[in-house]
Design a protein around this nucleic acid. Structure first.
Lengths: 363, 363
DNA sequence: AGGGGAGAATGAAAGCATTCAATCCAATGC
DNA sequence: GCATTGGATTGAATGCTTTCATTCTCCCCT
């Protein structure tokens, strides 16, 4: 492919002029500009992204570092980021960390050599991002943190309203009449898990409901963890009438455990998830959940990053996107014999969440 | 960050020597080599990927062009490719085309300016990849096609055994005693859809079963399409006793339609999917499906690409990875009154597929 | 008509690593 | 002991674009 010198020769102008036409970095008078544009057309010339990046000390790449694309929640975040980046001429380099902070470190170090404009990171467990980000920022690259934060993070971040979401979900269960509500949280060293737990606790406290310590189980964010903790919970006496899962995978595990024990959802146990993954509405019974706007999370992170690239030097922004309760058939009032004494039967609760159909997958 | 000249100065050697130490491109005697390595350490030096790529006319990036990460089948492919690429020092630039060939074209053109080592592409509808790939290959970049092929594709490819998979699935339904089997295919301009249909037809032909034309429905690869086609099929008289979906999303739509009409699966209608997405085993009833090795698809594509980069100039490779039947509760023999006259009740059929638990998601 | 100045165009330098032809050295062979 | 050979080392050239100091034009004003 032709290079810029070639174009300059063809158009009979200097290198600088070609560059100025290409980048609008200086006014170029009509006749020259036209000649350059025609030469570019004729040669099918495209500037080398490498040479450009080398010279400018910055490329239009954005490093996207996430635990695992294969995890059903993350693709939406990636897609949101990619769309926004793409629309602005930026490209995403995708890195999976498997939640391993040493693998994350490798990616972070490697990525630097490409001089990306910035990084969008969903931190791994025990991430060292805070320190790494400093060196990026020193070299003018922006770093935005998404979904969960590493310890001591003070930079830009975009997260979901985990606490509110969990609070609303728990409150809904309480309004339905549940009193013995258990929770299976995700790993509590993750800020999002911890926030969800806090929301759960707050709702329970506000209703003056005690939380039996054994009703609080910590699990990994997966189906197996949810299932095993649910098996424990479901065998306790008295048995909880509702279980709040730290995410939808956990909730799926709960549903599985319920089936295995010959119990029924929602008749015997109500189940609430978190994330509202696509399949939540599709399973049987449809899973009530707290919608987390994955796409928006990614898109917003990219937006902030681009603002930084374009010179926004303001203080760190901490965007918290609203969550939304999606009520579905996996939650129902407890059996009459179980209903909280004196509690009304969730008169207004039904209005708290609406079920909106979602489906737009194509292959 | 320091550059190579700096390192050369620190180590008291020439630029060339530093380069040779870094790339093992020529032997360097111990004392010098040590001095260079120490200088690299001390300065925390990392070569600039941009300068390197510029000089070598090739970077260690791989363009990964897919329809949509958000589509549940693709993340596994991406992950397979990323793992293999990463293990060999390559990085993935992710591009979503939304199945739009003009968007694909934009990506393909843009990507070129990064001088990637190659491209892994799941072609969009009506992709112009065949032509684009030529120009890549001329410049020494490899292009590998995955999952489906654009028209007239003669380059490297990695696909699943779509025909065999569909054949095995259909044969299984037949062996269960079904005779009126309908199929809802994906878009038939996609090679994978078409191959699955061919497998379906072959199995039916081999059993001397006719296929009523109205039992063959074409749909988009999504839930809505599957649902609407299923509603048509389920209202036909005689009603099919089994429906084979072109992928799992379509099959999900079928299940939904069945429920809506007050029918039951598998008692009234058996349902078979294709892909074996993670949720297939988790829904109710668990969905029988044809496992497509998404991760392997991606990993193999990356493997081939790397071989090409390392100089494999052999003829185009067309890898076809085996699919595997996953029998689950969504399929069962038809009601006794429906069973094909003279057909045995699928004695050996049960052995044809085994259900293996799969779950390893973490967040 | 001459001087000044704004705007346009130029081209060399910079940014960084790789490669190759040339040089250097030591050891081997005769 | 000298020439030859092969391996080790060097440094200039290269790839491509952006930037900036400089030069050039042309117009306006006095």
């Amino acid at each position: 492919m032709a290079n810029m010198k070639e174009i300059a020769r063809m158009a009979g102008v200097s290198l600088g002029t070609v560059s100025h036409v290409l980048n609008r970095s200086a006014p170029v008078r009509e006749p020259l500009r036209r000649r350059v544009e025609e030469a570019v057309q004729a040669a099918g010339y495209q500037p080398s992204a490498l040479a450009r990046g080398l010279r400018r000390d910055k490329t239009n790449m954005i490093g996207m570092v996430i635990p695992d694309v294969t995890n059903p929640f993350f693709p939406a975040v990636v897609r949101g980021a990619e769309d926004t980046a793409f629309a602005n001429g930026y490209r995403l380099v995708l890195c999976n960390t498997d939640n391993d902070h040493s693998k994350e470190l490798v990616h972070l170090n490697e990525l630097r050599t490409y001089l990306p404009s910035g990084l969008i990171v969903i931190p791994s467990d025990f991430s060292d991002l805070t320190r790494q980000a400093e060196s990026y920022q020193r070299s003018g690259a922006a770093v935005v943190c998404v979904d969960r934060l590493p310890r001591r993070w003070h930079g830009d971040s975009v997260t979901a309203a985990n606490e509110q979401g969990a609070h609303a979900a728990t409150r809904y269960l309480i309004q339905l009449g549940h009193r013995r509500i258990a929770a299976i949280t995700g790993p509590l060293h993750l800020t999002n898990s911890e926030q969800r737990l806090r929301g759960f606790r707050r709702a329970m406290a506000e209703a003056d409901l005690p939380i039996a310590p054994e009703y609080l189980q910590e699990s990994s964010f997966d189906l197996a963890g949810g299932r095993s903790r649910a098996l424990l919970l479901l065998r306790m006496l008295p048995r909880p009438t509702a279980i709040f899962g730290g995410n939808d995978m956990i909730a799926m595990g709960v549903l599985q455990a319920i089936r295995e024990l010959g119990l029924r959802c929602p008749e015997d146990v109500s189940v609430m998830g978190f994330d509202d993954l696509d399949f939540a509405a599709l399973i049987n019974p449809p899973l009530a959940s707290v919608l987390q706007p994955g796409y928006q999370l990614g898109a917003t992170a990219a937006r902030i990053l681009l603002d930084r690239v374009h010179g926004d030097g303001g203080p760190a922004r901490h965007i918290v996107l609203p969550t939304e309760l999606r009520i579905r058939e996996s939650v129902a009032p407890p059996r009459a014999s179980e209903a909280g004494a004196g509690k009304t039967r969730a008169g207004g609760a039904r209005a708290a969440g609406r079920t909106t159909p979602r489906s737009r997958k194509k292959q």
